[in-house]
C-alpha cells in the first residue's frame, strides 16, 4: 500500500469498475498505457515499468 491508496475508499464512491493493470509506456497527457483484454487503458497516477 502506498499513501495514494489511503484515498481509495472515498474515490471508489464514484462507482467506476476496478481493474488490475500493469502500466507500460507513457502516453501524452500524463497517463501511461496499459492493456486490459487487448484494449488500451490510459491510466493516471501510475509510473511506468522499469524500462
Amino acid at each position: 500500500m502506498t499513501p495514494d491508496a489511503e484515498h481509495a475508499p472515498s474515490s471508489s464512491a464514484l462507482g467506476g469498475r476496478l481493474l488490475t493493470l500493469t502500466a507500460g509506456p507513457p502516453a501524452a497527457g500524463g497517463t501511461f498505457v496499459a492493456r486490459h483484454e487487448g484494449r488500451v487503458v490510459f491510466i493516471r497516477g501510475t509510473t511506468p515499468e522499469r524500462p
Binding site: A5, A8, R39, V41
Partner: peptide
C-alpha cells in the same frame, strides 16, 4: 480505449 485512475499500487 478506456481511461482509468490508479487507486492502489
Amino acid at each position: 480505449f478506456w481511461r482509468a485512475e490508479a487507486l492502489d499500487v
